[in-house]
Amino acid sequence: MLIKLSYLLLAGLTNGSVYGLIGLSLSIIYGSSRVINFAQGEFAMLGAMCAFFFMVSASLPWPLAMLAMIVVVVLAALALDYGIYRPLVRRRAAPLTIMIGTLAGAIILYGLAFVVWGPEQKFVPPVLSLEPLRIGFLITNSQQLSLIGLFIFFLMLTWYILYRTRFGLSVRATGVNPRTALLMGIRSERIVQFSFMFSAFISGVAGMMIGPLLGGNVGMGLLLTVKGFMAAIFGGLGSPFAAAAGGLAIGMMEALMAGYGTSLYAEPSIFVFILMVLIVRPYGLLGDYEAERR
């Protein structure tokens, strides 16, 4: 009983860490630009596919492969910024229009990846070992544990940047009111650019690490975007930490429902549950930030 529960919780924690990292990424971009980036999951897809490409096709050692992967996802983020976000903002497009723009970006990234890698499932090699690792009565592996570790690491890194640096203060100010931030001399375009790059970096690393556990294919981005988005609105979009917590919660619920019920009903019932929570708390479970913004 207890053992099964612990396994389910561990699985939930692993998947939840990925959803949480995507939610965190979404919320970082939302925080500075008021835009949901529907291409966020594609960054994770690129992370996984680049891991396959650089580690298998190019047979680079993993640190180099990771570096190369980061270059690719950051370039993709810059393309999204210069190709979609900026032109639309300069034409004074509404946030909804920009979101549709990011959806177009997601489809383009998916299409390009499809051309490069084709539709097949790829074996994404693990950075760390998939060998069973025994901790008490739990059997896990270091790849799985590293995801949870990364989740905590990126959470702390984001917190540090946002709340302990001058730059982070500019990011938060831009999120509250970009026009007023401009009057302080803060260039909001730079801030948004940073948030695109930083969040692509986080999602790319998450994708690279989850690749060996989920399997990598060019279509995986959409699912991750949806899960990350659910995580963000469930926890509260206004705060990266609430969004991350939302991801953990969704991962846990998913694992528990699949373990004690059937995985067939897991997703629909989570959607319904989140919907009910949002009816009671429209700003998400932990999201008061957004509500008292103005």
Binding site: L169, R172, A173, V176, T180, E292
Partner: peptide, 13 residues
């Protein structure tokens, strides 16, 4: 002003 930020953060900005 930036409502969710503290007075000190507003001054820092």
């Amino acid at each position: 002003i930036f409502p969710p930020l503290t007075v000190e953060e507003n001054l820092r900005l």
